[in-house]
Write a protein that binds this DNA or RNA. Structure first.
Length: 619
DNA sequence: TTTAGGG
DNA sequence: CCCTAAA
């Protein structure tokens, strides 16, 4: 396998020299469900991967501050341990953090891609699509989003890149398996050996048992825990675009974590996988590994995927098939054809509540009435304490110009999640982290105080957009000296640039999206409460309605993105986290499945051809 | 209560 | 996200 990583701008040369990750299969840890160990390699100018020299390895090791060996571990087992039967569905998702951005999430994304093609491979679509003619260009375009904004987040980028390669690897495995013509995995290495005679040996030593995956260190640790203060500073700067003088490691880590996790904008675009440069050669097997191991590994990966997505067969994967039969009532409803008609809604004015039983009951139960704003028609101006000027905002609805008090909703916003805890591969529901997440400081700092960087760049947006749940919740960092200023909950409020900053809005994380998508794929779109109960049971927020809304947005996104297909590079004010193409793809597929099932064809833009083209190309 | 849709 | 109407 080889790939070229192009880095935008000045970082290019820097990175080209050091960081690419070649995958190595490791069967050394069966008990942990075949993790994958990555090794470093250098990206040659022509896009080839050359096993990293010792120096390079050391360099990265230094970066990692991990002297043992350079290895990235993708723990593929956790999300996949459960069987695919329905009862375990919830647990299946357990390990998947629902709020954070971390490797396991990406792994899911990755497997999501694979799943997309599964039904087709096993189903009606021709296997030839799977053959040598597989369009890797398209395949790779699925991963165009390779993350990382700033150079010094190199670590993360490495990890992400490794994920990319991992996918590629898996895909290649798939391909070669279906072809049943194993490809010479050494070929690539030999090639590079031409340039660097010493490489082959290097590579074989590099990937041997010396680098046993250390699972005690999950991804999160790799990122920040091991960094020195100086490195943390660098990362901080990369993350927030400015320097900090704080020397407190904890603080730095937390800050960075939050910065990263809060906005998956970490994933923007520094790396761009250039499709054309990617060859079809699967490779980078540990020369010591034989094909059997290779296949074992592969199989396990597949199992994992199937577990992950809870379906080994098409019908399972296509909820509409199974459910439409078993649950005729729904079908009935669906078959009635037209959309539900609804009367025009009454106007309402929302007002913040001052009483606060809401938090306790909240949405957390998942069923409990979600204490909310209540409709109000007359507002009596309340006398305000002098020290507390009345903050008002306009009634957003009728343009009536009514001003209503704008009250911070105390703690309605969730505590800002703690990145580190998220990195631990625990779901938000898992006992361990749940606690952490909840008790962690609430950071709801207004971004208006923000001093820099991309965060700010991404701020400008149309208010209308802000209504969508996609908005990046501007989480800023306050001044360095204000460690504690995180604590103050200045929730909500005013306007930086005329607009009103959002009250509470939790950006959807990648993993949440994945869960949603998988939930839909399993239960079908519309079974929101089901999905909520099962897959999001541990997520206090996210009501069924939220899921529905998000799905709607995903649909839009998935169908919108297609025509462009290239607009992946920041299409302007992308305030939301970029949803990886594979996911969108999957969304679209699910959507199509659901729509083709009804008699309602082509509901979204009528780009049927395009869709199928892409799909087939992809497969 | 849950779903579908509109805002 | 929030809200209402419909089921």
């Amino acid at each position: 396998m080889e790939t070229l990583v192009a880095i935008e701008g000045s970082e290019k040369s820097k990175l080209e020299g050091t960081s690419a990750i070649v995958i190595t299969c490791s069967d050394s840890s069966k008990q942990i469900a075949d993790p994958v160990v990555y090794k470093l390699a250098r990206v040659e100018g022509d896009g080839r991967l050359v096993p990293a020299t010792d120096d390079e390895v050391i360099e990265v090791e230094d970066l990692l501050d991990d002297k043992s060996s350079v290895h990235f571990v993708l723990d593929t087992c956790q999300p996949a341990v459960c069987s695919s039967n329905h009862d375990t569905f919830g647990q299946e998702f357990m390990p998947i953090d629902c709020q954070g951005f971390h490797i396991s999430t990406l792994l899911l994304v990755v497997t999501g891609l694979l799943k997309v093609k599964d039904p087709c491979t096993q189903g009606r679509r021709s296997d030839t699509a799977f053959g040598t003619t597989v369009d890797l260009g398209k395949l790779n375009s699925q991963f165009e989003v390779i993350f990382l904004h700033q150079p010094s987040c190199k670590l993360l980028s490495l990890l992400l890149l490794s994920v990319y390669i991992y996918v590629y690897y898996i895909n290649q495995q798939e391909i070669s398996r279906s072809e049943s013509t194993p490809i010479d995995v050494h070929h690539q290495i030999d090639q590079s050996g031409d340039r660097k005679p010493s490489e082959p040996s290097t590579s074989s030593t590099m990937c041997d048992s010396s680098s046993k995956p250390d699972f005690s260190k999950l991804m999160g640790k790799i990122c920040l825990d091991n960094l020195s203060v100086r490195e943390l500073h660098a990362t901080f700067k990369a993350t927030f675009g400015r320097e900090t003088s704080v020397k407190d490691k904890q603080w730095l880590k937390r800050r960075i974590s939050m910065g990263l996790s809060n906005s998956c904008d970490v994933s923007t675009t520094t790396f761009i996988i250039e499709n054309n440069r990617i060859t079809k050669k699967p490779k980078v097997e540990d020369p010591n590994n034989n094909n059997n191991e290779n296949h074992n590994h592969n199989q396990n990966q597949n199992e994992n995927q199937e577990d992950l997505f809870g379906g080994t067969n098409v019908s399972e994967n296509n909820p509409s098939v199974g459910q439409s039969q078993s649950q005729s009532q729904h079908v009935e409803d669906d078959n009635q054809g037209g959309k539900r008609v609804r009367k025009p809604t009454k106007r309402y004015i929302e007002v913040s509540e001052t009483d606060s039983p809401r938090e306790s009951s909240g949405r957390s139960s998942g069923h409990g009435p979600r204490a909310r704003l209540r409709p109000i028609h007359n507002i009596q101006p309340q006398p305000q304490p002098l020290n507390k000027p009345l903050v008002t905002r306009q009634d957003s609805l009728g343009g009536s110009g009514v001003e209503i008090p704008y009250v911070s909703r105390i703690r309605r916003g969730r505590p800002r999640e703690n990145f580190m805890s998220l990195m631990k591969f625990q779901s938000c529901g898992s006992e361990v982290t749940a606690k952490v997440v909840k008790t962690d400081v609430e950071v709801e700092v207004e971004d208006q105080g923000m001093t820099t960087g991309w965060v700010q760049v991404q701020q400008p947006m149309i208010i209308k957009e802000a209504r969508e749940s996609e908005e990046y919740s501007g989480e800023g960092e306050d001044s360095e000296e204000g460690y504690d200023s995180e604590e103050d909950n200045i929730l909500t409020v005013p306007t930086a640039k005329g607009g009103m900053r959002r009250k509470h809005h939790r950006p959807w994380t990648l993993s949440e999206v994945v869960k949603l998508v998988e939930g839909v794929s399993r239960y079908g779109a519309g079974r929101w409460s089901e999905i909520k109960r099962i897959a999001f049971s541990t997520c206090s927020h996210r009501t069924a309605v939220d899921l529905k809304d998000k799905w709607r947005n995903l649909l839009r996104a998935s169908f919108a993105q297609l025509p462009a297909e290239k607009g992946l590079h920041n299409s302007k004010k992308q305030s939301s986290i970029p949803i990886p193409a594979p996911i969108l793809l999957r969304v679209r597929e699910l959507a199509e499945m659901h729509q083709s099932q009804d008699v309602k064809p082509v509901r979204y833009g009528g780009t049927t051809n395009v869709n199928s083209d892409i799909k087939s190309g992809f497969l």
